[in-house]
Amino acid sequence: MDASALHGSFAALRPRLLRFAKLQLRDDAAADDAVQEALLAATEKAAQFQGEAAAATWVFAILKNKIIDEFRRRNREPATDTEYEEALDESIAAQFDGVDHWIDHPAAWSDPGASLEQKQFWEIFELCISALPAKTGRVFGMRELIGLDTDEICKELKISSSNCWVLLHRARLGLRDCLSRRWFGES
């Protein structure tokens, strides 16, 4: 692709890249950096792209790697968000009784598929993901938003499979509770 066409296509892509990075990195500056680096790396490869779709795919692939790099770096730092961990502990503890049965049996959500068409649903969805503790949110993001399998996540973050499953289970219980309360209107 020629440079000006590529430039235009990347400019159009930028908001999506930023949104993608922000939800996962939870830090606007870090998201900006990752997007900038991904665009720069892709610009250097401009000559190789056969059209816009190939360029976009390439930029996203680079961005995903940048996000994983940043996750790997953060994973070496001790967690500082104990209040998020406590909030998730409380959310889960409030769901089960002393013998691990439901305190209030969850009810099926009515027509959840219709929510996917609503702008406000996505705001709540992102809000609930952002409320997860950092490490739990990282593993959930790598699994569900980037689409890695658990073996890859274990390798990148140097955690065991069972640890990975525990974190994903906690993430899903937390998100289930958050969406029930904030979107699907359970008490």
Binding site: F60, A108, P112, G113, E144, L145
Partner: peptide, 22 residues
């Protein structure tokens, strides 16, 4: 119900990726 919720989380995440990613 929880099984449905968790499967919906997967479906929503895939839809999110479709919206924000290539």
């Amino acid at each position: 119900a929880t099984s449905g919720h968790m499967q919906f989380l997967r479906r929503a995440a895939l839809a999110w990726r479709g919206k924000h990613s290539v």
